[in-house]
């Protein structure tokens, strides 16, 4: 699985050798009372530093499971997961995680929710505050720093969650349907912003999504997964320019080709073969 995309060469952390994320022949089986369920099988993915990779697939195909494996929240039944060449054994600290729900602490203001990351890690206070201010400005949260989560809209809450995930400059950002609960308009705005933030931070991003358009607009590569037991059906290289205007991208022929191919893979599995 070679990467022919030039954008991956603009990686910020040139020090990291080899793949940012290396998933090698991984399988996950859950044992319930009645039967064994195979959530994932034969999954091998290699993600270079600085890449933006989206994962799409039907509900229950193990997309989220894949992110849990990379973060170390879940251990594979077989196979190996490596993060920057290191075996993932337990929960990893060198990642940022964004869930579908913002998962904010309602007794903390936006800023203090972001700083939770620093408190848990024991980061130097002044440095953390400065970084938080940077991120607040970058995500357009300025003016809402002292608002409580219940005073923020869904999009704003998700921005806070994103800031919190980026506070410690993680080399890898994992996003599990981060915009799934937002309305279509806010979602498009967030897509544009995430693309910009990714380019500014140079983080490796792994994004799980249900939206094919979102996946193709944002990612360099899209991993399409089969229904349970989930495995990689195909990896689509998105041949769009680095500079992606939302409107222009939507009407680009390459966008239509990529989304069409993914739709074929996801929808008509009977005719795809």
């Amino acid at each position: 699985m070679t990467v022919g995309n030039t954008t991956t060469q603009r990686s910020a952390d040139a020090t990291a050798t080899g793949a940012a994320v290396d998933i090698d022949e991984v399988a996950v089986r859950f044992r319930t009372k009645k039967k064994d369920v195979t959530a994932l099988r034969d999954v091998s993915v290699r993600i270079e530093p600085g890449e933006f990779v989206a994962i799409v697939g039907a509900s229950g195909c193990g997309k989220s499971t894949l992110l849990k494996l990379v973060s170390g929240l879940l251990r594979p039944s077989s196979g190996q997961v490596r993060l920057h060449g290191e075996d993932v054994r337990g929960p990893r600290r060198d990642i940022g995680y964004v869930f579908q729900r913002a998962a904010l602490l309602e007794w903390r203001t936006a800023r203090r929710n972001i700083l939770l990351q620093a408190e848990m890690r024991g980061m130097p206070k002044a440095q953390a505050r400065q970084r938080a201010d940077e991120l607040i400005a970058m995500t357009g949260l300025t003016g809402f720093e002292d608002a409580y989560p219940n005073e923020l809209s869904g999009g704003m809450q998700q921005r806070v969650a994103l800031c919190r995930a980026l506070l410690h400059r993680p080399p890898v950002l994992l996003m599990d349907e981060p915009f799934g609960a937002l309305d279509a308009l806010t979602r498009e705005q967030m897509n544009v912003e995430l693309r910009r933030i990714w380019r500014e931070t140079g983080t490796t991003v792994l994004l799980v999504t249900h939206s094919i358009a979102e996946a193709v607009y944002l990612a360099n590569r899209v991993i399409v997964m089969t229904p349970r037991p989930g495995t990689v059906a195909e990896v689509i290289d998105v041949d769009l320019p680095v500079e992606r205007d939302y409107g222009q991208t939507m009407s680009a022929p390459e966008f239509a080709r990529a989304t069409g191919r993914i739709r074929d893979l996801l929808g008509a599995t009977t005719t795809a073969e």
Binding site: G140, F144, D146, Y148, Q189
Partner: peptide, 25 residues
């Protein structure tokens, strides 16, 4: 470009979000 993006977002935020935030102390 950033401000044009966040403009509609602000209007969808609950009315008086900043006002109630400052009232809190």
């Amino acid at each position: 470009a950033q401000s044009t993006i966040e403009q509609p977002e602000r209007t969808t935020a609950p009315a008086g979000a900043t006002a109630s935030a400052t009232r809190r102390p």
